[in-house]
Write a protein that binds this DNA or RNA. Structure first.
Lengths: 223, 223
DNA sequence: GTCAAACCTGAATGGTGATTCATGTTTCGT
DNA sequence: ACGAAACATGAATCACCATTCAGGTTTGAC
């Protein structure tokens, strides 16, 4: 969620050969964007290749020029979303100087991304059966960034002595369900907020801060 | 997860008319059990009615004697799992006298249930598209129990002043991902533990305890 | 023992959708 | 301007499945 510090090589779909011509690249990108949208609204199984190609504005057969099959397309979509959400969090927290700042910025970026790309939740959850490898890679890559952030924060004495791996999974879980409840569900109910309500965000930050702070109360030293 | 204090009426599939005869009840129960297993291992879409009836040891047509269709069966399975996991947590934490005890017992029960019923995770996640109502009802009913537990703990001064709703969703999320990572994933990798490893459990408890404790350090007063 | 209600059954129906392929069109280096 | 590589296409193929139904079997109240 924050403490982002992406380093290791990309965890997924490496051998993507982009089409040689501009036209081909555009078509491929259109298919990918259409797939993200259709997978998110219809679900993997109701997302027929016909729907996707229609949304992309290309013929049915064209799909198979760019992807071996539906499953590979799905993997690619998960991979793309994963890369983008990590980049968003990483960018947001890169300017921060303290752990608290980084934490806030990272989570804000995560919720904003969630709001802008409702596909993230629905698609990752479906991956359980469609592509378990993709699902694990998604969660693992995010947690890895978090862990390394926590480690360096601990080295600086900004975080108390707690297993960083467990803490990272716990925090990611917290962010995930909060996002589901206040971003995804609210959106589906009609609204289109840019993130979670302020009081929820602040409560979550207070929760995290208290859980991680070294020992004496460091609460509320900012904002 | 804990602080369980279930009160309100059941949130889901209410009007279940049980078959009048013993034989019918047994058949229905067999179908339900088979469905849980097949949904969990194959996923909703690959879980054909044929597979389910075969696993249940009944003829294909028999299915439609007991359920209007596949979707209704799925709802029923979610409802059952939800009732059982809440009951397990509620029972486990009912004997506790302090919030900390209740917390530990509740989470332990949750992880144990997760270990014994891998279906819980996979089925609930699929509900996103198969039956969003069922999914929401599942999460909401668990969180509601948690919230009321937190509220009464706050009244007794055992929990600091934090929004109980936000805290509940955060904690449920933490438990969910920890369970996914250390129970579900480990199981799929071969092992069949009865819950999360001790050090993970303790780290999570320490995390939660610190996040919720009133103010002065209450850490590690037990165990 | 009788009979209606409750149960059970699996072949047939109807629909859907991923993937293939033979054929036409566009792009681009030379 | 030319030709080969890229790209585009949608009808046809093939497989899978939810659901229906018409007819048989079992149960249990009397």
């Amino acid at each position: 969620m924050n403490h982002v510090d992406i380093n290791r090589p990309e965890p997924l779909g490496p051998e993507v050969i982009l089409p040689p011509t501009k036209r081909g690249q555009r078509t491929r990108a259109n298919l990918l964007a259409a797939a993200e949208s259709v997978f998110a609204t219809s679900g993997y199984h109701d997302a027929s290749i016909v729907k996707i190609t229609e949304e992309a504005g290309v013929g049915l057969g064209t799909f198979y020029v760019y992807f071996p099959g539906k499953k590979e397309l799905f993997d690619q979509v998960v991979f793309d979303l994963n890369r983008r959400v990590r980049q968003a969090m990483s960018e947001a927290s890169s300017g921060a100087t303290t752990r608290l700042e980084a934490e806030r910025a990272g989570f804000r970026a995560f919720f904003a991304f969630t709001a802008a790309h409702p596909a993230l939740y629905s698609i990752v959850r479906q991956a359980e059966f469609v592509s378990p490898e993709a699902m694990r890679a998604h969660y693992t890559s995010i947690v890895d960034g978090y862990i390394s952030g926590l480690l360096s924060a601990q080295a600086k004495g900004e975080v108390r002595d707690i297993d960083p791996t467990v803490a990272s999974w716990a925090l990611m879980g917290a962010g995930e369900l909060i996002g589901m409840r206040w971003v995804q569900w609210e959106q589906q109910a009609g609204g289109r907020p840019e993130g979670v309500p302020d009081h929820v965000f602040e409560a979550l930050m207070s929760f995290i801060e208290t859980a991680l702070a070294p020992s004496a109360s460091v609460k509320e030293e900012s904002v």
